[in-house]
Design a protein around this nucleic acid. Structure first.
Lengths: 330, 330
DNA sequence: ATTTTTTAGGAAAACGTTTACTGCCTATAT
DNA sequence: ATATAGGCAGTAAACGTTTTCCTAAAAAAT
């Protein structure tokens, strides 16, 4: 029942080798024969067997991607783009979603040697799995690496510049009392955004009105803003380390009867899809998800297919997306 | 370099068959020999080759899951749960995210016969891919099927009951002027939720204050609520076909200076993770994502491993999650 | 026309497992 | 003690491709 390459060969009146050749787009097949083979394939509705192929080639054509969660739309966007880029190049993507620490990449799909290479998205620390991958000589590329040093080729985002630009935008709008709500400490991106913010302020000769530390959650921003309101100690503008925090801040303000952006200007980070949907639309720093994915795939495939070139780091620039949540000071 | 089953066999002083047997947990291996094999594996850091395995067994151990997007947290939750359940049973999950219509499951991972079975999440119509899968005798199970009829075993949610319960909740709080914002027509779930809503209203002897039709987006809810406010024709309560719509409605109200839930009670549908994070916390109908995943996996694996039993449909009940966004009428 | 080069296609040997099938050896029953 | 069954382990044949030679034919050069 299962139609194999032999059946196709027989039908086409040629050998399996020839069939294999047209399958792999190899040259040296007469046009007429190629036609015959294609015809036979179509007639028999032939599908090459992936396992057999992988076995013979010694490659699976599968790339693993590990990430902590898909709930995050930045991760989601990166994953989607990676998937598309890989598809273009004839590879498949295998996801491994796991909360980091416990069995990340060594986990699930990557246990047997099912993958030709692995992409690690936002790894926080060099856990056991990275080591194992390296030991087993499986090519790895780090995306949005959150570690100080990089144990492998990486694609990173210039979070410093993102924070810097965000602050500049607010300063440029005439604000002087500007606060920052930073993200969790373990994330390099949090620390860099904060550093960028501080640098811009310093450059303008300003002191931060305040700097808080939150988690990347709506409720976190809400609580901090609520505290500000209760204490009647509100800045005129705030730069939040991510869109969730920003949205939480705005929600608290709305509930307190404040008008946005009149009473408070807000800038976020990430450009989550719903950042544009609440009103006023959130001004935010967009992460170049597409570029991260493209560069990551490029780097990894080069490593897999070509020479094991030196460990590189690609740094990408985020982009300020101006909407309505940050306005000139009243 | 690559260590194969032969190397293990040699080291253990046994034949490859024996090694294979302990690999597959087959009985009939003397404990002492099993030990030897395990020891040899460990010493050589042996990893079985997945491709060879699949080829020999005629099974890949991979299950495909197609969905339209991962941005949706319901889909995301289902996907995650499926992944875990499959892992428990020794299977791997391959995602295929594509906007439906164009190359869904036939697409990407499922082109060659790489999968042992496929799960279709929220399919809207019986597109070409379902047909192809059936033609190729690849087991399929539909999750949250959105079609009137079901071309394969399905796991569905009782959306009628969800809508019914939501309406009852509002009625029970004393509301009489209750509106509904329905989702897009093509979704069976939209239509069922609306039907449930209407049934509950009718049973209470009430007319819907109004029924609108929106899309599953925040901005959609926002615009509708804004229109209500401008026209000064606000219900006292609204049941939205999903959380996004509900959140949009609430956002518009907040911006208009209304107090929630005093001025408007809102009930959503889905229980998206951020439904609980904005204030007031959204009262909503939770989809049993975990159960859907579990039943789906169960059904599919039974079909793959066991007898091709009759086409079944499992119907699951959603659950009303009460938070603060719906309150007794003032 | 003959020799040399290029091109196209085939035979056979991988690739690393699993799965019959066979036979030995050791208990158990007679 | 002998026949019998049953548990264990091994040999060989799949599984469906690709790849490495190698040869025949065709094209180019002499």
């Amino acid at each position: 029942m299962k139609v194999s390459i032999f059946d196709v060969a027989r039908r086409a009146g040629l050998s399996v080798v020839t069939v294999s050749r047209v399958l792999n787009g190899a040259a040296s097949v007469r046009d007429k024969n190629r036609e015959k083979v294609l015809q036979a394939m179509k007639e028999l509705d032939y599908r090459p067997n992936a396992s057999a192929r992988s076995l013979a080639k010694g490659k699976t054509g599968i790339i693993g991607l590990t990430l902590r969660t898909l709930q995050d739309s930045f991760f989601d966007a990166v994953a989607k783009e990676i998937n598309d880029r890989l598809a273009e190049r004839g590879y498949y993507l295998a996801l491994s979603v796991s909360p980091e620490g416990e069995g990340s990449p060594a986990h699930s799909t990557f246990k047997e040697d099912r993958v030709d290479g692995v992409l690690l998205l936002s790894p926080i620390r060099e856990d056991e799995s990275v080591l194992e991958l390296k030991r087993r000589k499986i090519p790895v590329v780090l995306l949005d690496n959150q570690m100080r040093h990089s144990p492998a080729p990486s694609v990173i985002v210039d979070n410093f510049k993102g924070g810097f630009d965000a602050a500049c935008h607010l300063i440029g709008l005439g604000h002087r009392r500007i606060s920052h709500i930073a993200g969790p400490g373990p994330f390099l991106s949090s620390r860099e955004r904060e550093r960028g913010f501080r640098a811009a302020m310093a450059e303008a000769g300003l002191q931060p009105f305040s700097v808080e530390r939150g988690t990347f959650r709506i409720s976190s921003g809400y609580e901090i803003a609520e505290r500000w309101i209760r204490a009647d100690r509100l800045p005129t503008a705030v730069f939040a380390a991510d869109d969730n925090i920003a949205l939480g801040v705005m929600d608290a303000c709305k509930n307190a009867g404040l008008r946005l952006p009149r009473d408070l200007s807000v800038v976020g980070f990430d450009d989550q899809p719903y950042a544009a949907e609440f009103r006023p639309g959130l001004t935010t720093v967009r992460q170049p998800a597409g570029q991260i994915a493209r560069h990551g795939v490029e780097l990894l495939l080069k490593r897999i297919e070509g020479a094991p070139q030196r460990s590189v780091t690609v740094k990408l620039e985020p982009e300020l997306v101006v909407r309505e949540s940050a306005a000139p000071i009243a």
